[in-house]
């Protein structure tokens, strides 16, 4: 009884939107961890990891991050209807 299909739909949309915002928050954290991973690599002129591997790894992560950010930027394209606090956000346009 409670909640027409339409309302369900809206809630689901809001829910998805929030999860996408969570993803946008999560992305830099995982990026940081992946970028700091080289700290564990063996280093030195003799037994250091080969430069080509390092380059491939860093740029692969980098490309993945850019791609992730690209996808997310489209997924949260709509104006966030609700802020974290749940309060409706006032219109963003400036009228002065």
């Amino acid at each position: 009884m409670n909640g027409s299909p339409r309302k369900m739909f809206v809630e689901r949309q809001t829910y998805r939107k929030r999860r996408m915002q969570d993803a946008a928050r999560f992305l830099p954290v995982i990026g940081l961890v992946l970028f700091l991973l080289p700290l564990f690599w063996p280093r030195g002129p003799e037994d250091g990891i080969a430069m080509s591997v390092a380059i491939e790894y860093i740029f692969a992560v980098w490309i993945a991050l850019v791609a992730g950010a690209l996808v997310l930027s489209f997924l949260i394209k709509e104006e966030p209807a609700l802020e974290d606090g749940g309060a409706p956000e006032p219109p963003r346009g400036r009228n002065d």
């Binding site: 970028f35 700290l39 280093r43 030195g44 002129p45 250091g48």
Partner: peptide, 24 residues
């Protein structure tokens, strides 16, 4: 190019961990 890089004098991972994190 990758082969040349590995063969060069900077061909090994030599980055100091502290500097890596601090500079980032």
């Amino acid at each position: 190019t990758l082969a040349r890089i590995d063969a060069s004098e900077i061909g090994k991972w030599q980055v100091d961990g502290g500097r890596w994190a601090t500079l980032t």
